[in-house]
Amino acid sequence: MAALRYSGLMIGVLTFAFSGSMPIAAVAGAVQFVPHRAVYDISLARASPGSGISEMSGRMVYELVGSDCAGYTQKMRFVTRITGRDGEAQINDLRTSSWEQAEGKKLRFTTSQYRNDHLEETTQGNADRGKSGDTVKVQLTKPGHKGLEISGDVMFPMQHSLALIAAAKRGEDVLMAELYDGSEKGEKVYLTNAFIGHEVATAERLEGVPLGVQAKVDLKGRPVWPMAISYFDPQETQQDSVPSYELSFRLYDNGISTKLFIDYGDFAVEGALTDVTLLEKTKCEGQKGR
């Protein structure tokens, strides 16, 4: 059975001449993501016979805390129970954690993959854009010590998320980027192509938002855009190449997402928002990042 992969929602080289070395603050401007914890119920949307999957259910918990001065920490736990066509069930548990400097110069990340409560793989490392910003140096400590050097034009997850909102506010409908988030053993840079839809009409802004969430967070008064991002392997960049996977969702201007849909090709899953908890904003102590 296939293992789930997931890059951060709030998970390059942008078509509107945005440099990966530009500070997040310069991109954000009026973009302010609210610290929060969001819970999504995961269900199987479709599966081809070749996927080996007959049933799937699960939950994803995403958490964002931090600020421009303290940097941003993202945590995600993605647990699914997958039943194969032979009737055998398997529990997949993906856990990720990352901290990103507000100026987009540093990224620390850890990813652990459990299967049936057994730790199968851990990736840990850090990425440093350096003073010049021409390259990003990656130092991996798990599963083994390894050094990599990638283009300084790559974007880290929070840079990408904030750039999506900035592009949406400008009315742009396409955003191309190279994205590095430490996934795939920390050795993968994805080429991404994001399509940004028109701002959702006020009357439809709460579609897919439970009443309990509406009582906690004012989303009706916030702009929201439908977005779809295709993730391509840089080794497969032919004109008709198929993306490794595709992610679509609605993204509010405060960073909360709804109506998740992840297409892995031979199967796809949906994520329905069930709860949101607003968290305290990290206080600034005179330093920008660590």
Rank of each mutant, 00 (worst) to 15 (best):
G221S: 15
D233F: 10
K283G: 07
T111C: 09
V224A: 03
Y190V: 10
V31I: 13
I42H: 02
G171P: 12
L175S: 02
L191V: 14
A3L: 15
P35E: 07
V34E: 14
D134I: 10
D173E: 13
R115P: 00
S97L: 15
A28T: 11
E100N: 02
E246Q: 12
L247G: 00
V189A: 04
L94T: 07
Y231H: 07
L175G: 01
L219Q: 06
I165H: 00
L179W: 08
S67P: 14
G29K: 13
G133V: 12
V136E: 00
A70R: 12
T73R: 13
L206Q: 04
S248M: 05
A26S: 09
V213A: 05
I11P: 07
E103S: 01
D233M: 13
P157Y: 06
K142E: 13
V79C: 00
V154A: 07
V174M: 15
R290A: 11
D181R: 00
T192V: 10
E55P: 00
S151Q: 06
V61N: 03
H36P: 09
A45N: 04
L119G: 01
R115V: 12
S57P: 01
L273D: 05
R129K: 10
L94N: 06
E121R: 13
G271P: 10
Y190L: 13
D117R: 15
S151T: 12
G144Y: 15
L278M: 02
V200K: 08
I42T: 03
V61P: 01
N254T: 11
L251D: 09
R129E: 04
Y114Q: 07
G84S: 12
Q90A: 10
V242L: 14
I53G: 04
V174K: 14
V61H: 05
L247D: 00
R290F: 09
L175C: 03
L4N: 10
V209D: 04
R250S: 04
T110C: 11
T277R: 13
D181W: 01
Q124L: 14
L4W: 04
H198I: 10
A201Q: 15
L164N: 01
T141M: 12
Q139L: 15
W225L: 03
G171W: 11
T274M: 07
I42V: 13
D181M: 01
E88K: 08
A228S: 12
E246S: 12
L219H: 06
D117I: 07
V138D: 07
G265C: 08
E285M: 02
V39R: 09
R85I: 08
E270T: 11
V276Q: 06
T135V: 13
A47G: 04
E280D: 14
S241K: 04
S248I: 02
I256F: 07
E55F: 03
T258K: 11
Q239L: 15
E207A: 04
L107I: 06
T274H: 02
K216C: 05
P223I: 02
K106N: 10
F156V: 08
G152V: 13
E204C: 01
